[in-house]
Every structure is written in C-alpha cells, then in structure tokens.
C-alpha cells in the first residue's frame, strides 16, 4: 500500500433516517478511523442528536424526511464547503465496514479513478445475502444499464468514494432511492473514471428489514421514468 491518506481530508457522509438502534455503533466505528463524519439526519422521528451529541461529528438535520438521495446531496454539499479532498458515502444501517474505506480511497489517491464504488459481487467481496435479494439486485442492475448504459457488478451499493473532480459538480435530484442510478448517469455524463472495489457487507436482521425489496425496485423504476419525462 502506498502512502497513507490524511484522514482529516476525508469526509464520510452518512445519511440516516430512524437508525436509532445502530447509529451510535456505526458512527463510533468511523470515529475510530479519524475521518471527518457528516451525519445527515433525514427527519428522523427521534432526533439523532440524542445518540450522537458526545461524538465528534458534524450533524445536519432535515426538518422533514426528504429521502436518502436528498440527504446525500446535503451531506456532499456540506463536505464540499468544508474543503474536503475526498468524500465517502456510507450507509447508516451498519452493513458497511469502515475498514473498506481505505481500499476505496486507494485508486483515488493514486489518481487511477475519480470515483470508486463498493461492490458485493466482484472477487474478494464478502456477503451473506439471500438468493431472493440477489435476484432483486440483478433486476436493478439491468434497470441501471437501461438508463445509464453502465454495466456494473453491483447496482445499489451505498459505499462510494469521490475525489474533488467527481464531487465538484454532483447534483443529486432524485430525493428517493433512485439516486443510485443517478450517480451512474453522472459518471457517464461527466466521463469520470470509475472502479469497482470489493467490499464486505454485513447483512444483519436489522439491515435486511430496511433494505430494498422488489416493491422498492418498482418505485425506483418509476421515479427514474418520471425524472426522464419531467426533468
């Protein structure tokens, strides 16, 4: 591994909606890696401040629930204004591992990619996923391909890393879950260099409950369609 990245240049954006049960553990793990952490509380019923007030994090609060895409955009803009050098997006439900962040940053640091995307399906990745979920993700991959022309091994992985070139112009308009596809359109449009990195995903009963289902897949599909029509 090449020289270390200074963790103070790295901003980890964590969009969170009603993650009271796990948020403290997730954030503590990130804190121990010394990154800057931007938690965007997307209108949770019980404010996350109660769980995080003693941890060194930037806590932003949406007054009403707008959706994960909107929360990510808020966090990314905030990190940008703080002069971040690298921005990571990280799910709040505990399925990502903070140790993977370094692997995601490596290609950016070596200037081999502008954006790295976590993948559950390329060699080296670990997951304990059910077959049903795998099938759902296959459909999602196909939809992404349909809308963006990018064929990735993983469709909706929340773990991503951006360099300054990548996040400079990012503008997520899909407030809901369709933002994952929007990221890919963005890559394509701006001709960014991307790379998929194997990451470890921990499927706990908790994250399974909150994860995407076939139904949310349909919602994403229609969101994308409407976005294409109405802009």
């Amino acid at each position: 591994m090449s020289s270390h990245i200074n963790p103070s240049e790295v901003y980890v954006v964590v969009p969170a909606y009603n993650e009271q049960a796990v948020i403290r553990n997730v954030i503590s793990e990130l804190v121990s890696c010394l990154y800057n952490i931007v938690v965007v509380d997307d209108g949770s019923q019980e404010t996350l401040n109660n769980y995080l007030h003693d941890l060194p994090v930037f806590l932003l609060h949406h007054e009403i629930n707008l959706g994960q895409g909107a929360a990510l955009q808020t966090g990314i803009e905030f990190a940008k204004e703080k002069n971040a050098k690298y921005i990571i997006t990280f799910d709040a439900d505990g399925q990502h591992s903070a140790a993977d962040i370094e692997q995601l940053l490596e290609p950016l640091k070596e200037n081999k990619a502008d954006i790295t995307l976590g993948s559950r399906f390329i060699e080296g990745a670990q997951h304990n996923m059910s077959n049903k979920r795998k099938q759902t993700l296959q459909i999602a991959r196909f939809i992404n391909y349909l809308f963006t022309g990018l064929k990735l091994t993983d469709a909706h992985n929340g773990l991503r890393a951006f360099n300054q070139k990548a996040f400079a112009n990012i503008k997520i308009k899909e407030n809901g879950m369709a933002h994952a596809t929007e990221f890919l359109s963005f890559i394509k449009k701006n001709k960014l260099r991307y790379k998929e990195i194997p990451v470890t995903i921990r499927y706990t009963d908790y994250s399974k409950k909150k994860g995407s289902t076939i139904w949310s897949g349909f919602r994403i599909f229609f969101d994308l369609l409407l976005n294409k029509i109405f802009g």
Partner: peptide, 30 residues
C-alpha cells in the same frame, strides 16, 4: 399537477437543505 408537485418538491428540498447546512452541529475541535 405532477410537474408542479415536482417543482415544489425541488424548492422545498433546497430550502430544507440550506437550513440544515446553516444550522449544522459542529464538533468541538472545529
């Protein structure tokens, strides 16, 4: 109506986002 709702949603998002950024809680050493 749908187009109008979408426009309103986008405006609302902008307003809430701006407030969230303005009123961010900052860690002590920053």
């Amino acid at each position: 109506l749908f187009a109008r709702v979408r426009r309103l949603e986008q405006k609302l998002t902008e307003v809430i986002r701006q407030r969230a950024k303005d009123e961010a809680t900052v860690p002590k050493d920053h």
